[in-house]
């Protein structure tokens, strides 16, 4: 965990409101961990913004983000060569599991951390099925790269403008049916709940990566808590952002 000044090497728009930001330097993050980024050098906006690690090498850190508000709008304007303050790596990351097969479920910008996980799992020789759902075709990023890397690729859009029309979770039971796989998911809360429910019904191990409004990112401020399945609060920043599905979702059977 460190605070680093990192220079923007590349900053490009990949799709509607979706940007890829490559920074120089090694932050040493594992898949599923995140960083806090000072989007402006001024005191306004006041808080850093948390972003999952999209890729991490010995020489660079890549983030993939969607412009959703003031902070990300400002970040999108930062040019190549600008220096950003980055704190990380933060959070627990995806655990390493034993099964040879993995099913990754990405919803919208939730695709960001799964890219890094996918590369890591493939490097470990695992079979990966990738399910990717967005609202519409204009939000899809890196489709060709995903297709070339995985054993099985499924695309859905809510409006049917690309891939199969519907929610990504509708495909999940049939994808899981023929496998003994662990599930890794990142996306909107409703999607994660649906994935967790299917995993519970099929008795499969499932990890979900959550997001929350965050201040410190290091476990001190207690601002980012979510209510766990047992009713106790958990900090998304340090107890997560990756949780075993059963820890944060419960289902009345």
């Amino acid at each position: 965990m460190q605070k680093k000044k990192m220079e923007i090497l590349e900053h490009e728009q990949l799709a509607d409101d979706i940007f890829r930001l490559k920074l120089a330097g090694d932050i040493g993050a594992r898949p599923g961990q995140f960083v806090q980024v000072g989007v402006a050098s001024t005191l306004e906006p006041f808080l850093n913004r948390p972003f999952s690690v999209h890729n991490c090498t010995e020489s660079s850190l890549t983030l993939l983000y969607r412009v959703v508000g003031r902070g990300t709008r400002l970040l999108a304007q930062r040019p190549k060569g600008a220096i950003l303050s980055v704190v990380g790596p933060l959070g627990n990351g995806f655990p390493r599991t034993k099964k040879r097969q993995a099913v990754l479920v990405a919803g919208g910008i939730g695709v960001a951390p799964l890219y890094y996980l996918l590369h890591t799992l493939r490097a470990e020789g695992k079979d990966v099925s990738f399910l990717y759902g967005t609202k519409t075709a204009a939000e899809i990023v890196l489709e060709n790269e995903f297709r070339s890397l995985v054993q099985e690729f499924h695309l859905t859009t809510e409006d049917g403008s690309a891939g199969k029309q519907g929610f990504v979770t509708e495909l999940l039971p049939q994808v899981l049916a023929e496998k003994q796989a662990d599930i890794f998911a990142c996306g909107p809360s409703a999607m994660l709940r649906a994935v967790a429910k299917i995993a519970t019904q099929m008795d499969l191990t499932c990890f979900v990566s959550l997001e929350a409004e965050m201040a410190c990112g290091v476990g001190a401020c207690l601002g980012c808590v979510v209510t766990g399945a047992d009713g106790n609060y958990r900090r998304v920043c340090t107890d997560g952002p990756v949780f075993a599905a059963g820890e944060v979702f419960s289902f009345d059977s």
């Binding site: 906006p45 006041f46 808080l47 929350a212 409004e213 965050m214 201040a215 401020c221 207690l222 601002g223 980012c224 808590v225 979510v226 209510t227 106790n232 609060y233």
Partner: peptide, 10 residues
């Protein structure tokens, strides 16, 4: 246990 979320806003 503290207050329920949401607990903070910029």
């Amino acid at each position: 246990p503290g207050n329920p979320p949401a607990r903070l806003v910029e």
